[in-house]
Nucleic acid binder design. Structure first.
Lengths: 345, 345
DNA sequence: GTGAAAGCGCTAACAG
DNA sequence: CTGTTAGCGCTTTCAC
């Protein structure tokens, strides 16, 4: 039978209140009783019951993270950051990983259940009005990562600037016909990346050509954030310029996974990057280093850490106005756009 | 103020017991009152309080997973399997990711706290006697993944056979001097992989040469499971045969990350795989496909799923004898040992 | 400094 | 079919 404060109260000949105080470091417990309590507790192998504490204290010491699992490589890095910050706290992490972007609503509902967690981290979760209501109704502190809403704390990378950085790199390499591969329409971050792409082109005095821009129409459940979507997207893009001489000489894929698929489609068509076509992605997930993919890096670890930091603060101060942290993206040049391959592996 | 069963009992003009019964699908509640209860609950936006339920029911509907975060790529795949199985249940997942293999004890302690979770998944966690005691004392169902102990359910891959498979592949490619790169000594899985390596050599009538075998002495906190350890290990190995002509013509790295480092060290020394040296790893984590690394694949997704399945069963039947599931490893030939590179990306 | 007692919100006998 | 009541294990006033 598990041992409770009653057992140790009896053993130490004090009341359960004193045991509780002793364990919670309450100042007004005499040194001698405190020691006696601890001695008995140790002898009996006592451990406070988490659920009972949660109920009495009205908090769980749990924070939850909701994440679409197809962003796994991205999430792992963010998770490292979360974990590092959490290690300094007394919070544990419960993970709600949804298989598709649409089932994420269900995971969210579980995560916001009363008494489940004290706060919530939403990673790469598209924020619809319905979800905002759900979140607000839960009266739980929330921090968004890689997503944005005016009224909710968020940590993002400057996607627009990132899009521009990627595009400028390609422009600097002499390209003027630059394809843009996007996930399905309506994703906040990728809309921004597109805006950056257009910014850079206009800067360079180049007109935006819709023929060069393509939204994935595949893998809708993953909102087009898959290798397959990139593969099909690239084929489609190449198909548009079949037999013409004004096809793209470079491609900016708005996510690394899209770039992987694009590289493959290009390869199948006989194009090698960067010999025949330059390719750059966005994210810099782990495999990209091995694939030699040029990309725009999001500081995922830092984003996770910062998001957790913000959440910890908000836990202590729920009323303060929403805070938005924006990280700067970094250009990472690898062989897919002419960089040296020597840094690989 | 959050709404409780008392509020909805009052609103529906029944007792709290009836509300509780209605929500728990108890058969003996009349259809009419049930509907009335639900109506009021919906109107008031009632949601049961998780902690209160946990305390009263003496279970949390939470299962925990303890994992060393440096096995992240491995873990992500396992996590997918866990999540898929969990989606069919009413359990949520709390993740204890430790930064080093040594701090895993602390995470374990948090995970086993009374009232925290109903069961536990230990991923790639070395099982010492002290930990076994800790686990047993917690009286929590536990399933090990990628780790083994007689008295605890486990899901593993046949590491010995995997080691033999990798080695035989190299032997079949004509190699007779095969280097073996291992993490620090004493890791269960890698000891088995080494045993398989020796099995294969003996089968082929080749004597085991200790000079060809090397334990990482770097990155002790990660028990040598890092790229850096592989890098240094490979340099050390090459150093041993400096100026001799009996150096290894192939290397079996007991983990993919070690292989990455080894490839790099080889490259720096002017060796390219597979032109000058064959390299094969173990695990088949995601980047390996991009790196073109031949490897022995562990079915990580299936292992996660199976482990969760076993845990669910044990939750219902705590007393049954420990069950050990062993998966067969798969050889995956890629360009680092002569396979076609066309499948990359 | 310590104890008594009233919750925290829900479940589960036990009655009826 | 439904209500009463006693917990689940711990925290926290409020007294002394």
């Amino acid at each position: 039978m598990p041992v409770t404060i009653y057992d140790i109260a009896e053993g130490a000949d004090v009341s359960i209140a004193t045991v509780s105080r002793a364990f919670n470091g309450h100042p007004r417990v005499s040194e001698t009783t405190r020691e006696r309590v601890f001695a008995v507790a140790r002898a009996l192998g006592y451990e406070p019951h988490a659920s009972a504490q949660s109920l009495a204290r009205q908090n769980t010491q749990l924070i939850s993270a909701v994440v679409p699992i197809m962003t796994s490589a991205f999430f792992m890095e963010v998770l490292r950051g979360i974990q590092d910050r959490l290690d300094e706290s007394h919070y544990d992490l419960v993970v709600y990983a949804s298989r598709t972007l649409d089932s994420i609503g269900g995971q969210l509902s579980r995560a916001v259940q009363r008494g489940r967690a004290d706060g919530m981290l939403l990673i790469s979760t598209p924020i619809t009005d319905a979800r905002v209501r759900q979140i607000l109704a839960a009266r739980q502190p929330v921090v968004l990562v890689d997503a944005y809403h005016d009224d909710i704390d968020s940590v993002t990378v400057d996607n627009r600037r990132g899009g521009a950085v990627a595009t400028r790199h390609l422009l600097a390499r002499g390209h003027e016909r630059i394809g843009l591969l996007l996930p399905v329409e309506g994703s906040g971050p990728s809309d921004q990346r597109r805006a950056g792409y257009e910014d850079a082109l206009r800067e360079a005095g180049i007109e935006v050509d819709e023929d060069l821009i393509l939204h994935a129409m595949w893998d809708h459940v993953h909102h087009g954030y898959t290798r397959y979507a990139g593969y099909q997207g690239m084929r489609e893009l190449m198909g548009r310029f079949e037999g013409r001489d004004d096809g793209p000489t470079a491609v900016f894929a708005a996510a690394d996974v899209l770039a992987y698929g694009a590289l493959r489609a290009g390869r199948e068509a006989g194009y090698r990057a960067p010999r025949d076509i330059d390719v750059i992605g966005f994210d810099d997930i782990e495999p990209s280093a091995y694939a030699g993919l040029s990309t725009v890096r999001q500081p995922m670890y830092e984003m996770g850490k910062m998001a957790t930091e913000l959440l910890m603060r908000r836990l202590g101060n729920p009323a303060s106005p929403a805070q938005h942290t924006v990280f700067a993206p970094d250009l990472v040049v690898r062989e897919s756009s002419g960089g040296s391959a020597e840094k690989l592996v």
